[in-house]
Design a protein around this nucleic acid. Structure first.
Lengths: 357, 357
DNA sequence: TTGAAAGCGATACCAT
DNA sequence: ATGGTATCGCTTTCAA
């Protein structure tokens, strides 16, 4: 018996078989470089010695390739699986990554700045997809410093980073115009959060302006334009935060809208999950959406169709696919930085209708 | 200007500042090991030189730690995001991983054996979570050979691998007994696939036996026991495969069940997504579930509650959390291999009722 | 085909 | 607080 104090390595196997490291390496990575009898002998010896195969990290270092792309969220990782919009996006990314044999590394974002920077540095990846990342995030500069391909979605400040997204403002307008055309003027808005995650309740115009989230700015901006064009004073439009992007949170926050004297005739939600929560709240109160009150969402997640929710559809799966492709298909340096803008459309279903009289 | 032909490395920065590599390394990894003035000088020089920070692969190699755990599916990666059960599980894994600063690497499984083995070898991870993996999968031995911590869910053959799951057979019995108690004897079963993915239609008893999927065996076995106890000949029980685990596929396959002379009075589905598809098919035909026909699912995904589906609840989030913990909390070698069995329960809602007369 | 030598880029340990 | 040295485990020329 050999002493098994130290783990078996390429060298161990090479010595055992009486060949060089190169040959053992080839046995794994380039089967065509040696005759299969020798290869079998090597593999057999490896098995016998308990050699686990070429070390992944060492291989990655030597080759300069990780075989994975990193997905970076600001939200908690588990949120990535909680929100159907996010799931749709990830699914798109996964489709493309998979077809090129690339793994997907979901990178958690620790709270502290130093920790976050370290996390971004330690990710063994060939590129980053930034998702839901505030315009100014400390970890962003680390990611850029690494010099790997990067792509952003939704939030796009930096023109030097490839981007795939939608026209947030114009898309939001679609929903708002639909409502004003139906005659609605007393409109309220439901968002996930404005200033800080978790904080629910009405947000002032100043707070809206100070938000770090470009998507929120775009969507609120679109709503605002349309409503002002219809003669509504934006300062009087209640913008209510659910605190978190969840159905129950939205349902709870909807109380601010529904249980008041001058209940709005319509609610614009910046996401379908929120809109569905508002619908839940309506149901609890015996309000029939589309008749007693109008509710419009954003995203068109799968559940929206079942709930007959009027919403703005954005192609989340396609977004993910395009983002992944931008990362995986190398572009030549001369080329302009790609900026993909995907189309959106208003989907009118049953939750919106004329102003009740 | 320095020549920038070669990428900046630790050494480059060390030379520039006139310190040793160690000190530069410490500036990044152990800020407390040097005075902050020097650290600032180093970081500044790094910035100036375009040094991207310590290389992730090199660091991972040297430290012997990857900072990520690998999730391995047999299904396509995008499927992981398509199935709500799977999403719930992943969410649980993500919660725990995140809390310990660990990333999640979703590893695609290529079709070929060699490719699959390479993919498992190249994953830079500290452990593997095997999910939905057939009892005999070629990639499995590579994973075990790597000698990293491994945990399986659902499919469990090997007693040497830690496992978290449910009692498939007993849980399936819950649903079946509920139906037989209601008087149902003409019962059909809907599964995703038996022999090979994609193949839809009725499956013979032989095909059922030959399936590689332990979960399927467990659930069908449970149904069978109960039905036979109730005097039903299993050979006469239609077991229909939807081909894929999707709602539309199930709805389509339900035609085999609903559009026949002796329509069953009840359908047992091995998953909620399938059950929901059956409900869709019922709706198209004007059949009211719970009155005209009974439908029971399995999993209790979020949509099930909305659809008022009777089903067997399994704690998918908890499954994920436990699996992640088994991977991340190191156990001492002497300890027995953990096998966690999570509880399930029957959730009776509106889609099941007495036999229509 | 096979092998020798030269790194890939960083960190740990032990002095200083 | 700093620095020297050894090493992590592999792949890649290039020559034999």
């Amino acid at each position: 018996m050999e002493p098994r104090t130290t783990r078996a390595t390429l060298q161990t196997v090479a010595d055992e078989v009486g060949v060089s490291r190169t040959t053992v390496s080839n046995a794994y990575s380039r089967p065509d470089q040696l005759n299969s009898a020798l290869r079998e002998r090597i593999l057999e010896a490896a098995r016998r010695l308990g050699y686990p195969g070429p070390d992944a990290a060492a291989r990655s270092l030597r080759r300069g390739r990780a075989g994975a792309i990193g997905l970076v969220f600001t939200e908690t990782l588990s949120y990535a699986f909680a929100d159907p919009y996010s799931v749709g996006f990830l699914r798109g990314v996964a489709e493309v990554a998979e077809s090129s044999g690339t793994g997907l590394l979901l990178i958690p974002m620790p709270p502290g700045t130093d920790e976050a920077e370290t996390a971004m540095r330690d990710a063994v990846v060939d590129g980053f997809c930034l998702y839901c990342m505030p315009v100014r995030h400390p970890a962003k500069k680390v990611i850029q410093a690494r010099g790997l391909p990067v792509v952003t979605t939704d939030e796009n400040d930096d023109p030097s980073i490839p981007h795939v997204g939608i026209d947030e403002r114009a898309s939001a307008r679609l929903a708002a115009e639909h409502l004003t055309r139906l005659g609605h003027r007393r409109v309220a808005v439901m968002v996930d959060h404005v200033v800080e995650p978790g904080r629910a309740g009405r947000a002032t115009v100043e707070e809206q302006r100070d938000s770090e989230c470009a998507v929120l700015h775009g969507r609120l901006g679109g709503y605002r334009e349309v409503l002002e064009e219809a003669g509504v004073d934006w300062a009087n439009v209640p913008v209510v935060a659910a605190g978190r992007n969840s159905r129950p949170a939205a349902a709870a926050a909807a109380a601010h809208l529904l249980d008041v004297a001058d209940r709005p005739t319509a609610v614009l939600a910046t996401g379908d999950v929120l809109a569905l929560g508002v619908l839940d709240a309506c149901e609890q109160r015996g309000l029939v959406p589309g008749r007693d009150i109008s509710v419009a969402g954003f995203d068109d997640v799968p559940e929206a169709a079942r709930a007959r929710l009027t919403t703005v559809r954005q192609p989340m799966g396609e977004k993910g696919r395009r983002a992944a492709r931008l990362l995986l298909d190398p572009r030549d340096p001369g080329e302009a930085v790609p900026r993909v803008q995907l189309p959106t459309e208003l989907v009118v279903r049953a939750t919106t209708g004329p102003v009740p009289r």
